[in-house]
């Protein structure tokens, strides 16, 4: 192998590294698109799986809608739906029943990892999500929050 070829190989390798490094840069705030399905990995209390917390969130930019499938503890998954607004990296949302999100969130995205930080609340709650398709059995198991509430609270 001559010097020229070695030189070319090094340049190519450095180029690849730079390209990869470039890929891992956080997405610019204005270009963040939450569309897709996300699975909660960690929150302030620790690893979600260890805490018996299982949360999937689906965002759809085309309709500005979200669907949360959550199981905290035992029982069925419950489905919470609504609409969201993402402006300059700040996420706000309203559930179908009219309740707003507990707070607004600052979101950042890096590859397949989404981070949400609570705003105006201290201490800050930080949740990380990984892109992951919502399993069909989760969707099948889920009880619509509205249905559950209506059924459980009997209007006598």
């Amino acid at each position: 192998m001559n010097k020229t070829r070695i030189y070319k190989s090094i340049v190519a390798a450095v180029f690849c590294v730079l390209c990869l490094a470039g890929c891992k840069k956080p997405a610019p705030i204005e270009k963040i698109d939450l569309t897709g399905e996300w699975h909660l990995v960690t929150f302030s209390a620790g690893e979600a799986e260890k805490m018996d917390v299982d949360v999937y969130i689906a965002f759809d930019k085309a309709t500005d809608s979200f669907s949360i499938y959550q199981k905290i503890g035992e029982g069925h998954y419950t489905l919470h739906e609504g609409t969201y607004l993402l402006t300059n990296g700040i996420l706000n949302g309203t559930y179908k029943d009219g309740a707003t999100f507990a707070c607004s969130y600052t979101v950042s995205m890096e590859d397949d990892v989404l981070t949400m930080r609570s705003r105006d609340i201290t201490p800050e709650e930080v949740c990380t999500y990984k892109r992951k398709a919502i399993p069909s059995e989760v969707k099948k198991d889920a009880l619509d929050y509205g249905t559950k509430a209506e059924t459980l609270i009997r209007f006598l």
Binding site: L40, F43, S44, A45, V55, I57, F66, I68, Q70, I72, T78, H80, G82, G93, Y95, D97, A99, T100, F101, A102, C103, Y105, M116, S118, I121, P123, E124, E125, Y145
Partner: peptide, 11 residues
């Protein structure tokens, strides 16, 4: 949690 919504939804 540090946050809690009024209807129990995660966000």
């Amino acid at each position: 949690r540090y946050v809690a919504s009024s209807n129990g939804g995660w966000l």
